[in-house]
């Protein structure tokens, strides 16, 4: 009767089993041997050592790319955190970069402070400024917050150009640079690894649970006597820290700050990286950024067609693999899969 249906026609079916050590409850593992420990440790170690050895494998040109890719990875991490764990889709990545960059640049240019002082100060001060400016919009949700946060970088660029402050269109050049290319790379890679580690811990701590609750249902959080604005401020500050560090770092890596720090790329690429890497995994967007940035660098010859490439990748993943790379890989990694005769 049903001979034409594919299920009946198949003589084999694919059987998927969760690996024994992964208990049904998410994130709870029962470890009983080194083999099982290494099963969990190996992917993490691969990522950390992979990142640490990355600079050694590159020629000087590509070492520069590593630095930029790591900054994009930080931005993607911050985007993923805000979007998937707090429910704020923030397209203001360029604003974080710009704030950090200009504060660091101005401190170095006018006061002559060394990058080792300006970068930490710019990271914190920049995050404070970004949070303060986004504060009035924090009660917005979903697409409205996205639109407003997307406008801020453009707004700031136009203010800088129109008023001709902070060097205007020329920017501020001849800033102090970091000691050498190795230091350049390892400082940003170290910050990236630490940020990833901290964020993964944070989302499972109490404060992280409150962030996630705000995403799931902000009205219920208010009904529990907690001010959601206060926690959104904390979340934006944490996310802005990562972006502003990236900006401050880049200003000293290039020895120059200018309006291109507010470029749309910094807002858009993290989204592509998050969609590609897998939203909500934190590590996925980082990997996504580390793949997309070199790819776009390799295609530099095509000029503006690079943006077309972003869009194609974005479209491809949204349509064919909306869960993203990392969610897919994690699932496959945690399951045995084999064919069974029926």
């Amino acid at each position: 009767m049903t001979t034409n249906t594919p299920i009946a026609a198949k003589e084999e079916r694919q059987e998927r089993l969760d690996r024994g050590i992964k208990v049904r409850t998410e994130g709870l593992y029962a470890l009983t041997s080194w083999r099982e420990m290494s099963y969990l440790l190996a992917p993490r170690a691969l990522l950390i050592f992979g990142l640490l050895f990355l600079p050694l494998l590159m020629d000087p040109y590509w070492q520069r790319v590593v630095c930029v890719a790591a900054v994009y990875a930080l931005l993607a991490l911050s985007f993923d955190f805000l979007a998937e764990y707090v429910g704020l889709v923030c397209l203001g990545g360029a604003f974080f970069i710009g704030c950090g960059g200009y504060i660091s640049g101005l401190l170095n240019h006018h006061l002559g402070w060394s990058p080792f002082i300006t970068i930490p100060i710019a990271t914190i001060a920049g995050a404070m400024v970004s949070t303060l400016i986004l504060l009035p919009c924090l009660r917005l949700r979903g697409v409205y917050f996205a639109i407003v946060s997307f406008m801020f970088p453009m707004l700031t660029v136009n203010i800088i150009v129109a008023l001709n402050v902070f060097g205007g269109t020329e920017g501020i050049s001849a800033l102090a640079t970091l000691p050498n290319i190795w230091f350049d790379q390892y400082i940003v890679i170290a910050v990236l690894i630490i940020a990833l580690f901290v964020m993964r811990r944070l989302v499972n701590e109490d404060i992280g649970l409150i962030f996630r609750s705000i995403k799931d249902n902000d009205q219920a959080v208010r009904a529990s006597g907690i001010s959601i604005t206060l926690y959104k401020i904390k979340a934006v500050f944490i996310a802005a820290l990562m972006g502003c560090f990236g900006g401050a770092y880049m200003s000293h890596q290039y020895g120059w700050v200018g309006i291109s720090l507010f470029a749309m790329d910094f807002s858009i690429l993290p989204i592509a990286a998050t969609v590609m890497g897998g939203g909500g995994t934190l590590v996925g967007p980082v990997l996504g950024a580390l793949l997309l940035t070199p790819l776009s660098e390799a295609l530099r010859g095509f000029g503006q067609l690079r943006v077309v490439l972003y869009c194609l990748i974005l479209m491809g993943f949204i349509v064919y693999k909306p869960e993203g790379m990392m969610n897919y890989l994690q699932r496959k990694y945690h399951q045995f899969e084999h064919w069974r005769k029926v």
Binding site: D206, I210, R212, S213, D216, N217, Q219, V221, A223, S224
Partner: peptide, 26 residues
């Protein structure tokens, strides 16, 4: 405090972690 007619759980969290929010309230 109130309950909601249409339930509003924090659906991505385990049931007991749903109570972490009120337990962290001022």
């Amino acid at each position: 405090v109130r309950t909601f007619q249409i339930v509003r759980p924090y659906h991505s969290l385990p049931a007991y972690k749903n109570l972490i929010v009120p337990l962290n309230s001022p």
